[in-house]
Design a protein around this nucleic acid. Structure first.
Lengths: 146, 146
DNA sequence: CTTGAAGCTATAGCGACTAGAGAATTTAGG
DNA sequence: CCTAAATTCTCTAGTCGCTATAGCTTCAAG
């Protein structure tokens, strides 16, 4: 009859979030303030668990909290167009692709550094050398704007 | 005879760092405090420019400031073994590779989301659906520890 | 009833900057 | 030489997404 309820610790276990993180999400308005026991401890419902799973999952996918806030807003009016959700997801996909591209450049550069290091003294170190001389670097562009 | 000197603005231009970033690096001990004019403005030398280029370059390659501090320390004793520099570079290479792996999972998941979105209403949105249901997600592992 | 785990609030810290206020200094042009 | 504009100065606070700590209260098991 009555839905099961959870303490913050159980909710943390169920969701994979840490306890302080859940309180943080409440503080910044991502999670609604739950009911409290007589002794002031938080009591969560299945609704909270679902919402937190959504948040956790979106975080795992790299969505910033502001985007998650927007997505959560959308889920509350299910008849709204999902074009906005699509736009948010595409934006994050773009950002992920940018980061991959950039990191691949760095990977190549770091490989070059470590492969040619013969581990003598610092004054002949390939790592130091490449870091010191900008011209010897391949990946010298700047990271994309957020 | 006298080496050329730079104002903080020129050093910023030359290095690609922003002015407040240079001051920040001084504050956290990465850049040595430069001489000052009679009017208290910073006066930089070629040494500073080289050091800042090193820092900037290492930052571009994803080295954390603490690692950069260590590397700068090494450059000051050129007869030291470069094994430590090599170790730092390899550690960062590892970290970059981890991040690439992780981001590729996210990319696949986000592609799956956006490709199947038919942009109707939110209650049938593929993006929202996947975010809501953990079982529908491929990339549900947790990011690697720093 | 006791004990230990789990919960509470509040504050501060992380990394690596960035932004803003308000005052002082420098530089270029007239 | 003087003024106006650009640059620089210090200081504080804010960003993001938590995490850690301190010092307390409440809850659940035995």
């Amino acid at each position: 009859m009555a839905d099961p309820t959870f303490s913050i610790g159980r909710l943390a276990q169920a969701s994979g979030c840490k306890v302080p993180t859940i309180r943080y999400y409440e503080q910044v308005g991502l999670m609604p303030p739950p009911a409290r026991t007589a002794g002031n401890q938080r009591v969560y419902t299945r609704h909270h668990a679902e919402r937190l799973t959504f948040i956790r999952h979106a975080r795992d996918l790299g969505f910033p909290l502001d985007d998650i806030r927007d997505l959560l807003g959308l889920t509350e009016t299910p008849t709204a167009s999902c074009a906005e959700a699509d736009r948010i997801a595409r934006r994050n996909l773009e950002s992920v692709r940018h980061r991959i591209q950039r990191l691949k450049l760095l990977e190549a550069e770091l490989e070059r550094m470590t492969e040619h290091c013969e581990c003598g003294t610092v004054d002949r170190c390939r790592v130091i050398e490449i870091l010191s001389d900008h011209d010897k670097c391949l990946a010298d562009d700047h990271p994309p704007a957020p």
